[in-house]
């Protein structure tokens, strides 16, 4: 089986509320590149949260890496999470740690010995052009630079799957282009990438990506879905 992720009739509700995700059937192949589109509130973040186990399906089955992980216990989560890189919408860098320590964190949490941490961290900081600021704290960086650190941290553990939530939502156009370029490079190295966005212009920047569309908690055909209003500027809305 070449799918790295497979949803089978997955539903999700928060507490006693209505389902925010309904009947999701979806397979992501190893090394694939997907864009998850949809208006704000459609459930994109919720779907990503299922993938990094911040949330568990309330209905249906979720398979990852060839295993049914729907009911995996708390003790089984760290090993799974180490195979998934996450770029959070709000970065979630650890404010009291230097850039170096932030990027090194997944390796150290996985028990990689200190001697094997330095080289990959420095390599990734160079890759995102922040090698000179390795000892700075996240708060001293611009939003775009923080985004790059978040990406470096997400990929340091060589994940099989990278998910990014609105990675271009908080940065200017030049940084957005650079961020997308990083994702493309990673994808070429074999990492499956799933990017959630409400930015209608992103498909133009990533023509190679397969498109998924969420509307009111359901996956719809991105082609037959009502055309998005074309806008000359990227939306400034956050979702």
């Amino acid at each position: 089986m070449s799918s790295i992720v497979r949803f089978e009739s997955v539903g999700l509700r928060y507490g006693a509320g209505a389902e925010v995700l309904r009947d999701i059937d979806l397979a992501l192949d190893r090394g694939s590149l997907h864009l998850l589109q949809g208006p704000s509130g459609a459930g994109k973040t919720s779907l990503l949260r299922l993938l990094y186990f911040a949330q568990r399906p309330t209905r249906g089955r979720l398979h990852m890496f060839g295993e049914d992980v729907t009911d995996v216990g708390r003790d089984g989560l760290p090993a799974l999470r180490r195979r998934i890189g996450v770029v959070f919408q709000d970065f979630r860098l650890i404010p009291h740690l230097s850039l170096f320590d932030n990027v090194a964190l997944p390796l150290r949490l996985a028990g990689v010995s200190e001697g094997d941490v330095r080289a990959p961290v420095e390599e990734l900081l160079s890759w995102v052009d922040l090698a000179g600021r390795r000892d700075d704290l996240p708060a001293t960086l611009s939003g775009g630079e923080q985004q790059c650190v978040a990406i470096a941290r997400a990929v340091i553990g060589r994940p099989d799957l990278l998910v990014a939530d609105e990675p271009t939502g908080n940065v200017d156009a030049a940084v957005a282009a650079r961020v997308l370029h990083l994702f493309l490079e990673l994808n070429k190295l074999g990492t499956a990438v799933l990017i959630a966005t409400h930015d209608h212009n992103l498909p133009l920047a990533l023509p190679a990506a397969k498109r998924l569309r969420l509307e009111r908690g359901m996956l719809v055909d991105p082609v037959t879905a009502p055309a998005a209003p074309t806008r000359p500027f990227r939306s400034l809305r956050k979702s």
Binding site: A54, D75, P78, R92, L109
Partner: peptide, 15 residues
């Protein structure tokens, strides 16, 4: 907040 992030990055309860 820090513990939550550490968990999402693969920290173990026992650590």
């Amino acid at each position: 907040p820090t513990i939550d992030v550490a968990h999402l990055l693969g920290a173990e309860d026992k650590a």
